[in-house]
Measured scan of single mutants.
Amino acid sequence: DKPLMPYMRYSRKVWDQVKASNPDLKLWEIGKIIGGMWRDLTDEEKQEYLNEYEAEKIEYNESMKAY
């Protein structure tokens, strides 16, 4: 599988927590909350997800070359 983009990594990490805090919200409403949370992160906080993505992207590209 292709590596997940940084925002999607963050979304997967916080989804269950946001859903548990807001059990009556629809999926798109939860997505909207998470989008706002992502925008509110500092560049340093986002960098963690970007670093994970870049590392996985290198691994993915290497595995595709071998294939």
Rank of each mutant, 00 (worst) to 15 (best):
P23C: 01
L27D: 15
K32W: 03
S21M: 13
P6K: 02
D24L: 15
S21V: 07
R12S: 08
L50I: 14
G35D: 15
A66R: 09
Y10A: 01
K57Q: 13
K13A: 11
P6I: 00
K46T: 01
I34G: 01
I58C: 14
R12D: 08
E62F: 03
L41D: 01
A20P: 00
P23S: 04
N61H: 08
D16R: 04
L27P: 15
T42W: 02
E45A: 12
M37R: 04
P6F: 00
D40W: 01
P23M: 02
L25G: 04
N22I: 08
Y60G: 12
S63V: 07
N22E: 01
V18Y: 00
E44C: 05
I34K: 04
Y7C: 05
E44P: 07
D1C: 04
P3I: 11
D24M: 15
N51T: 10
D43V: 07
E29R: 01
P3A: 07
D16V: 05
S63M: 09
E48T: 13
N61V: 12
K57G: 07
Y10E: 00
M5F: 07
K26D: 14
M8P: 06
I58Q: 10
V14M: 07
V18N: 00
L50W: 11
K46F: 00
Y10G: 01
S21G: 08
M37C: 03
Q17Y: 07
D24K: 13
A55N: 11
S21T: 12
K32L: 06
W38A: 02
G35M: 10
P3V: 08
D24C: 14
M5C: 10
A55K: 13
M8L: 11
G31H: 15
M8C: 12
G35A: 13
S11A: 10
A66P: 10
G36H: 11
P23Y: 00
A20T: 11
P23W: 01
S21K: 15
E54C: 05
S11I: 08
V18S: 00
L41M: 09
A20C: 05
V14Q: 05
W38E: 05
Y49D: 03
R9Q: 02
E44V: 08
K57P: 07
E45Y: 03
L41Q: 03
K46L: 01
T42D: 10
E29P: 00
D40K: 10
A20M: 09
I33P: 05
N61M: 10
K57F: 06
Y53C: 10
Q17K: 08
L25V: 06
W28S: 14
L27F: 08
K19W: 04
E44T: 11
K46G: 00
K46A: 01
E44M: 13
N22M: 11
W15K: 04
K19I: 10
M5E: 15
Q47P: 01
I34N: 00
E45L: 03
K13E: 14
G31A: 14
E56V: 03
I58S: 12
R9V: 04
K32G: 06
A20G: 11
D40G: 10
L25M: 09
E54Y: 06
Y67V: 08
A55E: 13
E48Q: 13
N22T: 03
Y60E: 13
Q17A: 13
R39E: 11
D16G: 08
Y10K: 01
A20K: 13
I33C: 03
Y7R: 07
Q17R: 07
W38R: 03
R12M: 10
E45P: 02
R39G: 07
N61Q: 14
E54V: 05
K2F: 05
M5N: 15
Y60L: 12
D1R: 07
G36T: 12
Y7A: 14
S63N: 13
T42R: 09
M64W: 08
K2H: 06
G36V: 10
M5L: 13
E59W: 03
I30N: 00
L50T: 15
P6H: 00
E44S: 11
M37G: 02
E45D: 10
D16F: 04
A20H: 08
K19Y: 07
K19V: 14
M37Q: 04
I33V: 08
E56Y: 01
A66Y: 07
L27E: 15
Y67G: 13
T42S: 14
E54D: 10
E62Y: 03
I30M: 06
A66M: 12
K57L: 12
L27S: 15
W15V: 09
E59H: 08
I30E: 01
R12N: 10
G36C: 11
Y49F: 11
Q47C: 05
N51M: 05
N61Y: 09
P6G: 10
Y53T: 09
L41I: 04
K13R: 04
N22F: 11
K19C: 11
E48H: 04
L25E: 01
Y60M: 12
K32Q: 13
K32I: 05
R9E: 02
N22W: 08
G36I: 09
K57I: 08
M8E: 15
G35K: 15
V18P: 01
K26A: 11
R12A: 11
D40V: 04
P23T: 03
E56C: 02
S11M: 08
Y10D: 04
G35H: 14
G35L: 13
M37F: 00
E48R: 08
M8A: 15
R9C: 00
A55I: 09
K46S: 03
Q17I: 07
A55V: 10
E45S: 04
V18G: 00
S11F: 12
M5K: 14
D43F: 08
K46C: 01
E54H: 08
Y49C: 02
